[in-house]
Design a protein around this nucleic acid. Structure first.
Lengths: 145, 145
DNA sequence: ATTACTGCAAAGACTTTGCAAATAG
DNA sequence: CTATTTGCAAAGTCTTTGCAGTAAT
C-alpha cells in the first residue's frame, strides 16, 4: 500500500510521535476500510505486533482522530467504530440491518438531497462517511419467500 | 396525551403483559421524543414509579422494540438510544455536529434518494428515524465570521 | 393457578485511567 | 536527555443475566 508512509508523515506533522504501534494501527485501519470496531483493529494489528495492548489501540485511535486521520462514527449498537478519513475519496455506506453487509457507494447520489436540505432548512449535510441503514436485496428476497 | 392507552393496547396485542412499569416507560418515551438514551428514560420514569429498576428499563425497551413500538437507533457514542415509532408520522432529524441542535424534517425529501438506491444498488433504505449529521446555518455563519 | 415480569445483585462487555518502564526525537 | 508513549492492571461505565419473589391474565 502506498498511503502508509504518507499518513505516517501526516501524523508527525500534527505533532505526534511516530511509533511502531501507531504505524501498524494506522495501516490496519487504512486496509480495513470503514466502520471498523476497535476490537477488530486490535485483532488484526496484533498479528503484526504481538505485544500490542488494546488500551493502546483505544488511545491511538483517539489520537488519530485528533490528528484528523480517522473519524469516529456513530454505530448501530454501543461500540466505537472508526474509519480512515480519506479526503481524496469521500464515500458513503449502505448497511443492511439484517445481514450486516455493507455496500460502499459514491456520495454523488446525495447531491439532490444535500441541495434540498440547504435550501429548505439551511442545513449543510455531511456526506462523507455517511452510513444509511436499510435492507439489501438478498435479505429482502429471502424475507418474501 | 391521547396515545398512551392506544400504545398500551398495541403492546397487549403483541402478546405481552401490561404492567405499571411498561406503561410508564412507554408513556415516557412517547413524551420525550426521539433519540433518548436509556438513562434518561429511567430518570424520568422513576419520578412516577420510585421503585423502578434500570434493568427493567433495559428489558422493557427491548420488549417494546420487539413489539414494534419503539426503535433502537444508532448512536453517536456508545449508548443505546430509542425513539417512539410513530407510523402516523415517520420523520427524520438533522443534527448539527457543532451545537447539537436537532431539526425534525419530513422524510419526503428522501424519496428521490430512496428510489435511486433501490434502482442502482438494490438497497431499500430505512427513512424513518434517520438522523443526518451536518452543520446548521447559525453555526456555519458563526464559523465564517 | 400459571406464566410472565420485576427488583436486586452479580456478572459481562466495552472503554478509560494511573503509573512505571520503554522509546522517539 | 526529556517528554511522549506503551503495557499492564485496575477502575469506570453501560448493559445483560440469574434467580427468587410478585403480579398479570
Amino acid at each position: 500500500m502506498t498511503c502508509g508512509p504518507r499518513l505516517a508523515q501526516q501524523l508527525r506533522n500534527s505533532g505526534f510521535r511516530l511509533t511502531a504501534q501507531r504505524n501498524v494501527i494506522l495501516e490496519t485501519v487504512a486496509h480495513m476500510g470503514s466502520h471498523i470496531p476497535v476490537q477488530e483493529v486490535f485483532e488484526v494489528a496484533r498479528e503484526r505486533l504481538p505485544g500490542l495492548n488494546i488500551a493502546t489501540v483505544y488511545r491511538t485511535l483517539d489520537t488519530l482522530c485528533e490528528a484528523g486521520l480517522v473519524d469516529l462514527l456513530s454505530s448501530e449498537h454501543g461500540l466505537l467504530r472508526y474509519s480512515l478519513r480519506d479526503p481524496a475519496s469521500p464515500h458513503a455506506h449502505l448497511v443492511c440491518r439484517q445481514c450486516g453487509e455493507t455496500l460502499d457507494i459514491d456520495p454523488g447520489v446525495f447531491k439532490h438531497l444535500k441541495r434540498k436540505l440547504e435550501q429548505e432548512h439551511g442545513f449543510f449535510m455531511d456526506t462523507s462517511h455517511l452510513a444509511l441503514t436499510g435492507i439489501c436485496r438478498r435479505c429482502r428476497d429471502k424475507n418474501q419467500e
